[in-house]
């Protein structure tokens, strides 16, 4: 096809990098939850969708964008905590696969609830930040903002996890669950906090995504599988792995999409993912066997 090493190729590469920031942020929350609670939220992208609607309606209702974003983050953080308390806690001792599937039920539920409440129309805030042009290459400001905020959020989370008592407890619990009571750590509380943080990260991702993407009830299906793939590719539970994997996958998408059609970029990414997992089932940075 029309794939050559020219300025447009470079543009695709750089846009891939910008996309990687957002995907890494999305993977981060899911990874954190998996690492700590050992549960995969199949409905993670649907939480993002809820956040996007929350922000959309808050902003349309007259709330300034930044406040609306904050509202979205808190809304999804609350949703994460509720999800954990109501759906995950009763199945914590069940087979892992039942835990995964129960969140699949939540996926259907949230999608349908959004359809009923908000309709099937595509909505967007209609905010245009414009774009920057560099030597024939153009990058939209919203992508650059997204990348910057995602990076900053990851830095803040990293500081939290490495400096604070609760943060260290969150990392510790992923390494040895049984002895946490000996440290005076209430596992249930840490799970709840982690779920809220995971939700908050989804909320933040939602706040960034409303700048770029249309909102519709099925948007989760667009991103969900991609996020799982990134988490598994990086090694479930590995935060750094998730970041590297996000970068690799988004480059596949960006370059594949610019050379062929969008679907092929995604398809190649999924194929690459499967091949890597066959060679290294624990993912690129996974420590588990």
């Amino acid at each position: 096809m029309d794939c050559q090493l020219d300025i447009f190729f470079l543009e695709a590469v750089l846009n891939g990098l910008l996309l990687a920031g957002l995907l890494a942020l999305l993977a981060l929350g899911l990874n954190l939850i998996f690492g700590v609670i050992d549960v995969v939220w199949i409905c993670y992208a649907e939480l993002v969708m809820i956040g996007m609607y929350g922000i959309y309606y808050a902003h349309k209702g007259g709330v300034p964008l930044l406040l609306a974003a904050l509202f979205g983050i808190l809304l999804v953080a609350l949703a994460g905590a509720v999800l954990h308390q109501v759906v995950i806690r009763p199945v914590l001792d069940s087979a892992p696969i039942n835990q995964l599937l129960v969140t699949g039920g939540v996926l259907f539920f949230l999608q349908a609830a959004a359809t009923m409440a908000f309709g099937v129309d595509f909505r967007n805030l209609g905010i245009r930040f414009g774009s920057i042009t560099l030597a024939d290459m153009s990058f939209s400001y919203s992508r650059i903002i997204t990348f910057g905020v995602a990076l900053a959020a990851m830095l803040v989370l990293w500081l939290f996890l490495s400096r604070t008592y609760v943060g260290i407890a969150i990392r510790a619990i992923a390494q040895d669950r049984q002895i946490m009571p000996l440290m005076g750590v209430d596992q249930r509380r840490i799970y709840l906090i982690t779920s809220a943080i995971g939700g908050g990260l989804a909320g933040l991702a939602a706040a960034l995504m409303v700048l770029q993407y249309d909102i519709y009830p099925q948007i989760g299906l667009q991103f969900g599988p991609l996020i799982f793939m990134i988490c598994v590719l990086g090694g479930l539970g590995s935060l750094i792995g998730g970041f590297v994997a996000a970068f690799i996958i988004s480059e596949f998408i960006a370059i594949g999409g610019s050379c062929f059609a969008t679907e092929w970029g995604y398809a190649i990414a999924f194929l690459f993912f499967m091949v890597v997992i066959f060679i290294r089932p624990q993912g690129l940075f996974g420590g588990r066997s």
Partner: peptide
């Protein structure tokens, strides 16, 4: 304070983080 069988340190946390989590309770 219980030092469990097999030591049970958090292997992927630094020594100091291990000590810090030992002081997790508010009084500590």
């Amino acid at each position: 304070a219980h030092v469990p069988e097999g030591r049970r340190l958090f292997p992927r946390l630094s020594v100091e983080s291990n000590l810090k989590i030992g002081a997790f309770i508010p009084a500590a």
